[in-house]
Write a protein that binds this DNA or RNA. Structure first.
Length: 387
RNA sequence: GCGUCGGUGGUAGAGUGGUCAAUUACAACAGACUGUAAAUCUGUCGCCCAUUGGGCUACGCAGGUUCGAAUCCUGCCCGGCGCACCA
């Protein structure tokens, strides 16, 4: 067992780290699960710390059985943890589409052969009141209200809906049905995971370990990507993913290495001792390798260096076609490169649009005549060819 | 049901008859700076046309008052909080 298995990227272990340690050392078989609500189209680096932890555990061998639970039912209810008010109802099609991506993306990290996949609609969809009410009677309203986030809402006089009380129960019930020995999730899931622990104890007299991982937060303590747009998704192209990591603040580096890579402490220490830019490139390379592969990571890195550091010809151009006589602005709008003509005009006025590579300025209502390459801002490279 | 407060741009949240396409903050986008960044500074940030400027559509929905409404009135829809029993 790796010495940092129970410490790296770990925020808390319930009931106690030592207990889990001895369970692991005793060779006791453990069913460990991680629940994800398929609310978005893709996993992102925020999931990476949990997945890597699961992989570490999976590597222990036969002793461990990893169960990935897709909250296809709970996704429809909406976890109040991400309380941004009105949730959009997801259609079953969207959900199953998401699930397809998720499974494949998880395969980047975990050994799918050794992983069990379940959907919680299996049991939650047919959970009747006669089952639900006894669950609800295990908890008091004040226990639920204790959650920080409910307290905050009371303070702000914003609504708390009944179904939001139900959510932790349902997630907890997953633990009961799956008869797991352990649950892993982000720190923000601690409350829900502990409800499951209580339920399991009450209904099946079973002890469930709960391992909460640290969250990838920025210096303000906000979850990455929540306040800024640089959350790296598994579905991002290698180049995008690489670029997004490079735009993370330097201050995030130590935490990001801990959570999103498996470089050893010592390696990380060496890397961090060097130039921050080099360190971040290393981080970006590692992350892209995890969510794609090392070859693509290499290419992404090369393209990044080319484009931004050497200002050389970018390796990827967005290819468009246009008719001679058409306004360039119209071609760009119809291909959603820019939002509107006004948007394009503003960019032109800001000096953000130039012809590549001779840097000729472009005027707002320039007419398209022959093949032209444009650089718009820092990141948009467009080549327009005659149709 | 009663009382009361409220529904504003991607978000939060000002604005209570004209100077409001709507203060501000965050996010976004761009420029400068740099180590790619971040931070900082500057600009943009409804849509369309335009050289200054003009037009259109927007402040829950539908009507109305007014020369003029995000702002006033009426109705409707949605929501918060309080009250309801013990009295």
């Amino acid at each position: 067992m790796n010495s940092d298995l129970l410490t790296r990227a770990v925020s808390n272990i319930y009931p106690a780290s030592e207990k889990l340690k001895s369970a692991l050392e005793s060779g006791q078989k453990l069913r460990i699960y991680f629940g994800i609500d398929p609310t978005g189209p893709t996993l992102h680096v925020g999931h990476l710390s949990v997945l890597l932890k699961l992989r570490d555990l999976q590597n222990l061998g036969e002793q461990i059985k990893i169960v990935i639970l897709f909250g296809d039912f709970t996704a429809q209810i909406g976890d109040p943890t991400d309380k941004s008010a009105v949730r959009k109802m997801l259609t079953p099609e969207t959900i199953s589409e998401n699930l397809k991506n998720y499974r494949e993306q998880i395969g980047k990290i975990l050994d799918l052969e050794k992983t069990e996949f379940r959907n919680n609609s299996e049991w939650l969809a047919k959970l009747g009141l006669e089952k639900l009410l006894p669950l609800a009677s295990e908890f008091t309203v004040s226990q639920m209200l204790e959650r920080d986030m409910f307290q905050e809402r009371i303070k702000k006089e914003s609504p708390i809906y009944l179904h939001e009380f139900l959510y932790p129960l349902l997630q907890g019930y997953d633990s009961v049905v799956l008869e797991v020995d352990m649950e892993i999730g982000g720190n923000d899931q601690t409350f829900n995971m502990l409800v499951g622990r209580d339920l399991l104890k009450k209904l099946k007299s079973k002890e469930k370990f709960v391992l909460a991982t640290k969250l990838l937060t920025d210096s303000g303590g906000e979850k990455m990507g929540k306040t800024t747009g640089n959350m790296v998704a598994f579905a991002d192209t290698p180049t995008d993913a690489y670029g997004k990591v490079m735009s993370w603040p330097d201050s995030l580096l130590p935490l990001a290495f801990e959570l999103c890579t498996r470089l050893s402490d010592e390696e990380v220490k060496n890397i961090l001792a060097g130039h921050p830019k080099e360190a971040k490139m290393k981080l970006a390379h590692e992350i892209v390798t995890l969510i794609h592969d090392s070859k693509l990571a290499g290419q992404a890195e090369e393209s990044f260096v080319q484009t931004f550091q050497k200002e050389a010809e970018p390796t990827e151009w967005q290819e468009l076609t246009g008719k001679a006589g058409e306004k360039i602005s119209e071609i760009l709008v119809s291909n959603s490169v820019v939002k509107s003509k006004t948007d394009f005009r503003n960019l032109v006025e800001a000096g953000a649009v130039e012809e590549w590579p001779n840097k000729n300025p472009i005027v707002a209502d320039q007419i398209f005549t022959a093949e032209i390459k444009l650089r718009i801002g820092k990141k948009r490279f467009v080549r327009i060819r005659p149709a």
